[in-house]
């Protein structure tokens, strides 16, 4: 389950960043991957659609969001939590 979520998120981010999924490492930040603010909002939308979840994210104050976007690992962990909460 966890690996599956991670792989699906990596695929989404890889497509956005125009990279291969294995280049999407857990410690990479969106900036490292060349994803700008609009790309980030687009990625979050794609993740919401993929997992049918709602991600609390305001582009004006990303640091205050419950959804930690500081690295790929934190994004994956946050999505796993939201998917689990959804049941």
């Amino acid at each position: 389950m966890t690996d599956d979520i991670k792989n699906r998120i990596r695929a989404i981010i890889a497509e956005q960043a125009m990279l291969e999924p294995d280049q999407i490492t857990d410690d990479a930040t969106p900036q490292d991957l060349g994803i700008d603010s609009l790309g980030l909002v687009e990625s979050i939308f794609a993740i919401e659609e993929e997992f049918d979840i709602s991600i609390p994210f305001n582009a004006n104050e990303p640091e205050k969001s419950d959804f930690d976007i500081s690295s790929m690992g934190s994004i994956i962990a946050a999505v796993e939590r939201l998917v689990a909460e959804k049941g």
Partner: peptide, 8 residues
């Protein structure tokens, strides 16, 4: 809403 730039 889609742009996520609106205040609640």
């Amino acid at each position: 809403e889609g742009l996520r730039v609106m205040s609640k």
